[in-house]
Each structure stands twice: as C-alpha cells, then as structure tokens.
Amino acid sequence: MMADDKHPVKLLCVRCGHANDERDSRCESCRSPLDAFASGTPWEMGTATGSAYATPTSPRSKPIIFWGAWLYFGPSAIGAFYFIAGFILSWITGESRMENLTESHAVLVLALMYGLLSSWALWSVTKGYLKKNSDPTD
C-alpha cells in the first residue's frame, strides 16, 4: 500500500505495538528491527532493547562457564594486580630491578591490560550467571 500526503502508512512494531513511519528500519520506541531481513542479523538482535530480544541475545551463563571463567581468570586477575602493586611499590622505594625504563613501562602496561581484561571477563560472566530473569532449568 502506497502512502499519500494525507494518509501516511504506519508500520506497527510486533514487539511493542508502536506505530512507526514506513521508512524506519527500527522501532522508535524499543529500537527493535521492523523488517524481516534486519531481525535475523546478530547485530540487529544484539542492539535491540525490546523485551522480545532481551533474553535470547543475553542468556544466563551456565554454571560450568561461570566456574571455568573464575578458575581461569580469577588467579590471572589477582596475579596481574599483585604484580602491578609490587612493581609500583618497588619503584617507589627505589628497589626496582629493571634499569631500562621503556622495558619496565611495557611490562607494567601489559600486566595492567591483562588484569583489566581478566576482570572484565569475570564481571561479564558473573553478571550473566546472576541474572534474575533466567530459566531455572539451566
């Protein structure tokens, strides 16, 4: 059906029921895709905030994933931050064993990046594991 100036065609979002302009590819209210092609792509499903996509795109983490991540990344994060703290303490007290300043900064930056990435992985998996709206049969 073609729209004219007096009667524009509105597309109804199947997720929230909001009436959208026919030229829109996403719902103005919930940002869910309006056409069938867009709704099948992972990027569209991951960026939609509607409740129809919220659970499938971010499911609850399984216990094996949760504990595996903590067993792998937990000691890594603790070790990286322990190394950083020791490095900074030895640098402050003047007992640093690394004479090359560039080398010592490179080691510090790598340890910091690894510690932050490990912490992010732990946070992400823990957040997914502790979801309240998950299926209890998981």
Score class of each variant (00 low, 15 high):
56 P>M: 02
61 S>W: 00
56 P>C: 02
37 F>R: 15
51 S>A: 11
38 A>N: 12
54 A>W: 02
58 S>Y: 02
30 C>W: 04
36 A>R: 14
51 S>G: 07
56 P>H: 09
31 R>W: 01
37 F>G: 08
59 P>G: 03
28 E>N: 10
59 P>Y: 05
57 T>L: 08
43 W>N: 07
42 P>F: 09
39 S>L: 09
57 T>Y: 07
55 T>P: 04
57 T>D: 09
61 S>P: 01
56 P>L: 05
31 R>I: 02
30 C>H: 07
33 P>R: 10
51 S>L: 13
29 S>T: 11
60 R>G: 00
56 P>R: 02
59 P>W: 06
60 R>F: 00
51 S>T: 08
54 A>V: 03
61 S>H: 02
52 A>C: 07
50 G>P: 02
43 W>M: 10
42 P>M: 10
45 M>G: 10
50 G>Q: 05
45 M>C: 12
46 G>K: 12
32 S>Q: 08
64 I>V: 15
64 I>G: 10
52 A>N: 12
63 P>E: 00
64 I>C: 12
58 S>N: 09
59 P>F: 01
63 P>N: 04
57 T>I: 13
28 E>G: 15
39 S>R: 14
41 T>C: 07
40 G>V: 03
62 K>H: 05
49 T>A: 10
34 L>Y: 08
28 E>Q: 13
44 E>S: 14
36 A>C: 03
57 T>V: 15
31 R>N: 08
63 P>W: 05
55 T>E: 11
39 S>Q: 11
53 Y>D: 03
55 T>F: 11
33 P>Q: 09
37 F>V: 15
33 P>L: 11
54 A>S: 06
40 G>I: 04
55 T>D: 08
28 E>D: 08
56 P>V: 01
46 G>M: 14
41 T>R: 13
51 S>D: 04
36 A>D: 13
58 S>V: 01
38 A>P: 06
30 C>Q: 05
31 R>Q: 05
53 Y>M: 08
32 S>N: 11
37 F>W: 13
48 A>M: 00
